[in-house]
């Protein structure tokens, strides 16, 4: 892979930005840091979501399922294994799960995939609740000495990895194949692309990343039970934020995550009982008014100014 000077410039800028952001825990108050963790968490989730759903147009609603799996890996594993190993294990388990889900659904039309992912979190929640009933345990306590700052740095590192992966995929044969699949799947098939394989491979990325996020964040929850770990709202919020930002560019989701996190903070503080309703309305507004997200707005504005000059 040969990098042009422009690529180097982009990479350097991104690295500098990351280092600046990484200093946040040194200066921020506790509340600001916890907002920072939330932003970092949704950035990781929404970016990895968009890497798959952006080019393929397959809407995955499974984020909460993988996130919950990750949280449970930490919850169960923390007593037996060193903490650093857990996100990796969670990522591998979830990537295998994602591959299985993909094998069952991604060979067929996209609707089956959407339906399957829609209920996946609920399904896992039922199975784990059942397992707990049998073994007689309730929730799990995750007691560690890990602080918010540690979580923040880990998520930041994960975000950097996700961006690198997305950037590398975009330049690879796989990324090229996916763009063709997204444009026209029939053409892609006739061009000799193994469409199912490409989609399954790519779906393993958001699956694994969501589980790693869950594993990293588990110490923040302290107490894990199925209802907390598999909250369906999470999948929904990730889709909203990614769409608000725009899925066409790698940096798109983060443009959506930052304003939405603050908006969401304001909403849940002022209208704690109407969050679901307002979330739904926000979602509809984005789908109708901003079908290409902020990225679309920015790019059409840029095109207009270029047209004038």
């Amino acid at each position: 892979m040969r990098l042009s000077p422009k690529d180097w410039q982009g990479l350097t800028l991104a690295a500098i930005a990351l280092i600046v952001v990484a200093c946040l825990p040194l200066v921020a108050s506790g509340y600001q840091l916890s907002l920072g963790v939330t932003v970092a968490m949704y950035t990781v989730l929404a970016t990895s979501w968009a890497i798959f759903s952006g080019p393929t147009h397959y809407i995955s609603l499974a984020t909460a399922a993988f996130f919950g799996v990750g949280a449970y890996v930490t919850g169960i594993g923390i007593t037996y294994l060193p903490y650093w190993a857990l996100p990796l294990i969670a990522g591998v388990i979830a990537a295998v799960m994602a591959a299985l889900v993909g094998l069952a659904t991604l060979r067929l039309s996209g609707v089956y995939f959407v339906i399957f992912t829609l209920g996946l979190a609920e399904f896992l929640r039922q199975v784990i609740t059942w397992g707990q009933n049998i073994s007689g345990t309730k929730g799990i306590y995750v007691l560690t000495s890990i602080t918010e700052a540690h979580i923040f740095w880990q998520l930041l590192g994960l975000a950097a990895l996700v961006w690198l992966a997305g950037w590398a995929i975009g330049r690879s044969r796989l990324g090229f194949a996916l763009r063709i699949i997204g444009d026209d799947e029939v053409v892609a098939k006739h061009a000799g692309i193994d469409t199912a394989r490409a989609k399954i491979l790519l779906f393993m990325l958001p699956g694994g990343v969501a589980a790693m996020t869950g594993a990293i964040l588990a110490p923040r929850y302290v107490y894990i039970e199925p209802l907390i770990a598999f909250t369906p709202m999470l999948s929904f919020q990730v889709v909203i934020m990614a769409l608000l930002g725009g899925t066409g560019r790698l940096w798109g989701p983060i443009v959506g995550v930052i304003p939405f996190t603050f908006l969401w903070e304001a909403i849940s503080r002022s209208f704690p009982n109407q969050t679901t309703l307002l979330l739904g309305i926000a979602f509809l507004a984005i789908v109708y008014l901003l079908p290409k997200g902020f990225v679309g707005l920015i790019e059409s504005a840029r095109r207009r100014t270029e047209g004038w000059s």
Partner: peptide
Amino acid sequence: EVDAILTTFGLSFVGVGLMLA
């Protein structure tokens, strides 16, 4: 299909929200 899924997904949350209210 994609548009309908997104829209009705949003509508379902509006529906849940209204009924909760």
